[in-house]
């Protein structure tokens, strides 16, 4: 019998990508996607269920569909497009409802995969160069997105202890760059200006968006248990990131009163740098990716490779614009072949 998978945040970038990947997996029989808004990518056999932000209907869906795997992609790690309350609702309350549904008596759920972020490690002066999965952050979380993620992870730990029959995978991703993903960092680089704090050139680490999806699928496929860091090899100085992307490094933020200046710049609409990114631009961060490698995962991109992937996509966008009409054309043709009554179907093809 194949897997029955539920994806949260189907309308988000990651939820949509994950659904596409699972659709290609023959071991998956049913894919159900939850979100407040519909999927933005073409999907064939994923069923979309409109849900409220905190997934209060989740328990009923799990019960009705006998889901065995939940892929929780919808933890918000970018605080720039969401209010503090919404963020809390989505991350903390959403995860609580999800875990409540998964841990209910006679629940069919046996595997939960959560897409978290290296933001849980923070970024501070006392940090080691590399964080391993067992290590704690050195400074208490100050930004609301970090606080919510730390809270979510603590719920997840409790859940794993209370439900030993459920495999719990927690993946902590480094900052993502790639061909399509939009993050505060990619937005800043896209404008042709890399904002920097005067006198600081932190070492950053990135993971390519395809490696994000591949690692989520890897965790699904191999039933990984526990916490894993996901990040490309190497740490790259921020100045070199700008260099690879071919953008100008502008130390527009002073080393003191950095937050205040960032606030002013953001209200002028010049940049949009959340507090957790300001810490990163000062101290950088490294997470040790060897545990996932030891589990058998093969990365396709290093940190520098992920930056290069973004840089190439950016150059393409600058030449041909953000839309790529060829794709919709292909999809329309595919839909025609699949659905039209005019297409003659031979039994062997079904």
């Amino acid at each position: 019998m194949g897997k029955r998978v539920l994806i949260t945040g189907l309308g988000s970038f990651w939820g949509g990508r994950m659904a596409q990947t699972l659709e290609a997996d023959r071991d998956v029989d049913h894919i159900i996607g939850l979100d407040v808004e519909g999927p933005k990518v073409p999907l064939e056999r994923t069923e979309y269920v409109r849900a409220d932000q905190s997934y209060s209907i989740l328990a009923r869906i799990v019960k009705a569909t006998q889901i065995d795997t939940i892929v929780h992609t919808f933890l918000v790690v970018d605080s720039t497009h969401m209010s503090g309350r919404q963020l809390h609702e989505t991350n903390v309350i959403g995860t609580m409802n999800l875990l409540a549904a998964a841990g209910a008596a006679e629940s069919s759920v046996r595997h939960i995969i959560v897409k978290s972020s290296s933001l849980v490690y923070g970024s501070s002066m006392q940090d080691p160069a590399w964080f391993r999965e067992t290590m704690q952050r050195t400074a208490p979380p100050v930004s609301r997105v970090e606080r919510s993620l730390v809270e979510v992870e603590s719920y997840l730990r409790d859940f794993a202890v209370d439900n030993p029959h459920v495999t719990v995978t927690l993946l902590r991703f480094a900052n993502v760059l790639g061909t399509d993903i939009v993050t505060p960092i990619s937005k800043a680089l896209e404008t042709g200006v890399a904002p920097a704090i005067l006198g600081f050139d932190p070492l950053m680490q990135f993971v390519e968006e395809d490696d994000v999806i591949r690692s989520l699928h890897f965790a699904f496929d191999r039933q990984l248990q526990g916490v894993y860091n996901v990040a490309g090899d190497g740490r790259i100085p921020w100045s070199e990131v700008a260099h690879i992307c071919g953008v100008r490094l502008v130390p527009m933020l002073p080393p003191v009163l950095t937050g205040l200046t960032a606030g002013v710049l953001s209200s002028l609409g010049l940049t949009d740098l959340p507090p957790e990114l300001l810490d990163l631009l000062r101290y950088g961060r490294g997470i040790d990716n060897r545990k996932l490698k030891a589990a058998g995962f093969r990365y396709r991109w290093t940190s520098a490779g992920a930056i290069e992937s973004f840089a190439q996509a950016r150059r393409l966008r600058r030449s041909v614009g953000a839309s790529r009409p060829a794709y919709t054309y292909e999809r329309d043709v595919e839909n025609f072949f699949r659905r039209s009554a005019a297409v003659v179907r031979r039994p062997a093809e079904t």
């Binding site: 590399w130 090899d233 790259i236 490294g286 995962f297 093969r298 520098a304 290069e308």
Partner: peptide, 20 residues
């Protein structure tokens, strides 16, 4: 096996190591 483990392309532009 997941993928052939050919060396990944690592387009570095400086010689700054992991320690800075």
């Amino acid at each position: 096996p997941e993928e052939p483990s050919a060396p990944l392309s690592d387009p570095r532009l400086s010689d700054v190591d992991e320690w800075g």
